[in-house]
Amino acid sequence: MSNNSKNGWSTPAALALPKEGYFKKEDGRYGPVFPQTPANYGFTIIVKVKPGREEAIREYGKTIEAAVKANPEFLGPLKLHYLRWVLFDVGSGLHFMYQGIFDTDFDKYMEDAIALFHSSGVTTVFVNLEGFPEDWKTNIPAVTKFFREHQRPSFLEYGEYPYVSAEEVKKALKLKAAFSEMLDQMQ
């Protein structure tokens, strides 16, 4: 995506993507890199849950909530906009969907993510999923491969304010707050 398209934040944009999730194959360190879209970067990982593990997984929602509450900067290095964790069963057994919207391709910060989840004990949520490598503690390449293999790329992404980073949104809101404060002071 050219940098020019990023200047058009005020014009909503949609982008249809080929089946593979990218127009031209470009490899990152661990596999294909997916392009920036009007909804920035991200992934959708869908994996089948091992039988009887639903409650264990739901508990991890609270673990993340507590970790961010204790340290609001906890997930900062991942350059996230949003995370969504969903459990669903449409007839083929319970599945876990992990969707994230980022300001960077996840290939770049894979080790940061694994380390953050590891430090908060969240990595173990994944042991409740089918196919998660048994030797995940010592075999980061296998963990990376697991996430890669279960990534389901989008075929459409839309942004009401396309290509804008979370940092830019926060700066704009800070600026707005600073301006209102300034106007108050001038009364």
């Binding site: 900067e73 900062g76 290095p77 080790e111 940061d112 380390a115 953050l116 430090s119």
Partner: peptide
Amino acid sequence: DSRVSRIMNR
């Protein structure tokens, strides 16, 4: 800078 990375030692 821990805002950028918390695994600088890695």
